[in-house]
């Protein structure tokens, strides 16, 4: 027992040392990207596992971006799949129709980006009227928005209507998904710890107080909503090119519920939590596949139990050291040492 404790202690100190090392995350990014490129070029991994990894990446993007609204800002949005659908359709239409098929892989990032920008524009249109009042208003508006997007796509025959859209090449490869995932996590993490991000957090804690502290709450909310829908659009573009087939029913309310579950499973207001939530949910769904229909019975049951015994999710409102800024870590360390010194002297 004591031996185990010792090992745990030494691991903790090592972990602290690693997280205080400035270049750990960039190094992790480069190594991971190289690893993904090597794996997908030389086909070192089972195709099925690669597919699961790509799904995990896409789900991480979705979860982290929804966490920005639901976790950090404390609003309740339920229409994330709608933005995903917009991104997926724009990106697929671009790669099928506009960009030359032969050099599709060069234009793929542009297509994904365009999908994100399209989703962000629509997000802007939704956000302007949604933040007139607080509370469940946003939930209702985004709910209606998700259903409107689905019905509109079903009614446009030129993009396949209810039959769906197919003919995309398999352009989403493991390195691309890794790149976009890392990029979105990086951007959202920096956004949260920026000056602007503090404003976002203050809205969650007390909107009136933050208004009095000269945070332009309306503007901050709109910007956060636009950023979040941008990343949902990007995830949609990637998703369409993994599956090579999309139809409007994929992006209905059940998909939005899935994303919500990942956010609240991992814990609100935590990037590490979102990543954990997306990974656990995606992997569990795959591992439990032999159970057939019953796995879909156990997943919600687990969610309910989790909510009853840990209402904030796995990492609720706590952040892994990996994603906290170095300055915060150092000041935390300084205060801890000072406290220990005080205790020792007294």
């Amino acid at each position: 027992m004591t031996a185990l404790k010792k090992i745990y202690q030494s691991l903790i100190t090592k972990w602290q040392a690693i997280t205080e090392y400035r270049f750990f995350l960039p190094a992790f990014f480069i190594v991971g990207l190289l690893f993904c490129i090597v794996v997908s070029c030389f086909d070192l991994m089972d195709q099925y596992i690669q597919l699961i990894l790509m799904y995990i990446g896409i789900n991480i993007i979705l979860t982290v971006s929804l966490n920005l609204i639901n976790g950090y800002m404390g609003e309740f949005s339920v229409g994330h799949a709608g933005f995903m659908a917009i991104g997926a359709y724009i990106a697929s239409l671009l790669t099928i129709g506009v960009f030359p098929q032969s050099s599709g892989s060069f234009f793929f990032p542009l297509a994904v980006l365009a999908g994100g920008i399209g989703a962000a524009l629509i997000g802007f249109l939704v956000a302007i009227p949604s933040f007139k009042t607080r509370g469940d208003y946003l939930a209702i508006v985004t709910l209606a928005f998700g259903m409107i997007v689905k019905s509109i796509i079903e009614n446009i025959d030129a993009i396949g209507g209810p039959r769906g859209l197919l003919g995309m090449d398999k352009l989403s490869t493991l390195p691309w998904v890794f790149f976009w995932t890392a990029l979105s996590v990086w951007i959202i993490r920096n956004l949260v710890y920026s000056n602007f991000g503090r404003g976002v957090l203050s809205i969650r804690e007390d909107e009136i107080a933050s208004d009095l502290m000269s945070v332009n709450t309306r503007q901050v909310k709109v910007i956060v909503f636009v950023v979040s829908s941008f990343f949902a659009g990007i995830a949609g573009g990637l998703f369409a090119h993994v599956l090579q087939y999309i139809n409007p029913r994929m992006f209905d309310i059940i998909k939005s519920t899935d994303i919500l579950i990942m956010v609240y499973l991992g814990g609100i207001g935590s990037i590490a939590g979102s990543i954990l939530g997306a990974v656990i949910y995606t992997v569990l769904l795959e591992v439990l596949r032999p159970l057939g229909v019953w796995r879909m019975v156990f997943m919600p049951l687990m969610l309910v139990l989790l909510m009853i015994y840990r209402p904030r999710g796995i990492m609720g409102l706590r952040e892994s050291r990996l994603f906290t800024p170095i300055s915060d870590l150092l000041s935390m360390k300084f205060h801890r040492q000072k406290k220990e010194a005080d205790n020792a002297s007294s």
Binding site: T257, L260, I261, M296, M299, P300, L303, V304, M307
Partner: peptide, 9 residues
């Protein structure tokens, strides 16, 4: 979220 979970269940 619990209500959503109960509904899915």
């Amino acid at each position: 979220i619990t209500a959503l979970g109960v509904g899915l269940f």
